[in-house]
Amino acid sequence: MEDLPINLPPEIQKPNFRALDGLRGVAILIVIYSHVLRAFPPGSNDIGLIGVYIFFVISGFLITTLLLKERLKYGNINLKGFYLRRCFRILPVAFLYLIVMAFLNTIYKLNIERSFFLSSFLFVRNLPLQQHGEIFTGHFWSLAIEEQFYLIFPFFIVWLSLRNYKRLVQYSILMILLLSYVCVKKLDTDFFHVPVSVHLLISWLFNLFGKGTVLILIGSLFSILLVTQNKFIRLVYNKAPDFLSLLLFLLGVIILTPVFPWHAPLISSTVFGIMMAFVIILNLKERSLMGRLLENKPLKTIGILSYSLYIWQQIFTYKQPWHEAGTDLLLITANLIALGIIAWMSYYLYERKILAYKNRFKRV
C-alpha cells in the first residue's frame, strides 16, 4: 500500500511557525491568572487547565510537524538528535527549579516529601504514586505527560509508515477516551466486577495516558492531516473567514469552563483539543485576525518565556514560601513582577546558553 504523501504548505516550510509564540503567551497567562485566583473565593483553579491543554495541543502539532519536515528533507529522522534537543530544552530549568525548591524546602520548612521531588525528577508526577495536593512541584504532572509522549510516539513516527502512524494515533485517541470513561465511571468495578488488580492497572493507564495525552495526539493528528493535504483541512484552511480562529478559540474556552451548562470533562476536553488544533492551523495564515493579534510583540515575548514562566510561577502564585500574598493585590503584583524578572533571567542568562548546544543538533 502506498504511503501518504508529505506535501508541506508554504507556512510550514518556514523555520518558525507564525503566531505559535503568541498562542503560548495566551496559554501561560491563563495558567498564571488561574493560580492567582486560587486565593480568592471560591478558590477554584480549573481554568488553568485551559492553558495547559493549549500547550499539549501545540506540543503534539509542533513535534510531529518538525519530525515530518526532517523526514521529508533528509529521508530519515535522527532520534538521537531529537532526544538531545528535548533534553537541552526541558531538563536544565526543570532540574534547576527542583534544586531551588530543595533549598527553599529546608529554609522555610515547607514539608515537601522526598517522594515528590523524586517523582518530579523522574517525570512520573502524573502517576498515582503518592497523595496529590503538594503545591510546589504539582505542575510537574503536565511535564511528565509530555515527556512520556516524547519517549513513546516519536519511535512510531520513525518505524511506521505515515499512514499506519495516523491510524495508530486515531485508534489511540479512541482507546484512551474509552479507558478514561471506564476509569472515571468505575464501570470495571460497578458493571464488569473485575478484580482489584485489574482496576488498579486501568487506573494507572488512565493516569499515564488519559490526562492530556489525547490532546497531544490530537495536535499530532492535525499535523499529519495538514502535511498530507487532507481535503477537509485544506478546505477549512483555504476558505475559512479571517475571524474563524478567534471564534473557535473563544468557543473552546467556554466549552472547557466548568460553569458551562453542558460541560463534561472527557468530551469537553476532546472537543477543545480539536478546536485548538484548528486554531493553530488557521493562525499559520497571514490574514488570520487572531494571528495578527497573536503577533503582538509583548505577547510573543511572553510566549518565548512561557516555559520558564510555567516552571517558576508555582512559587510566585497562590502560596509563596516566604510570605503568602493571599488576596493582597499589592503583594500579588510584587510577586508577579518578581516572577517576570526570574523567568527573564532564567531564560536569557541560563537556558539560552544551554539552548546554543541544542541548536547543534537541529536539522530543520
Rank of each mutant, 00 (worst) to 15 (best):
F55I: 02
S59G: 10
G60Q: 06
G60W: 12
L62Y: 07
T65G: 09
K69N: 05
E70L: 08
R71F: 00
R71K: 14
L72F: 13
G75Q: 01
I77C: 11
N78L: 11
N78Y: 09
G81Q: 05
L84P: 00
C87H: 13
F88H: 08
I90W: 03
P92Q: 12
V93M: 14
F95D: 09
L96R: 10
Y97D: 05
M101Q: 11
A102P: 12
L104D: 08
N105F: 06
N105I: 09
N105A: 07
K109D: 15
N111R: 13
I112S: 02
S115R: 14
L118N: 06
L118E: 11
F121N: 06
F123S: 05
F123E: 04
N126Q: 07
Q131I: 08
Q131V: 11
G133E: 01
E134V: 00
F140E: 00
W141E: 00
I145V: 15
Q148L: 01
F149A: 04
Y150Q: 03
L151C: 06
F153L: 12
P154G: 07
F156N: 04
I157V: 10
L160W: 11
S161M: 01
L162Q: 02
K166E: 12
K166A: 11
L168I: 12
V169C: 03
V169E: 00
V169F: 07
M175D: 11
L179A: 10
L179H: 08
C183L: 14
C183D: 15
K186F: 04
D190I: 11
F192W: 14
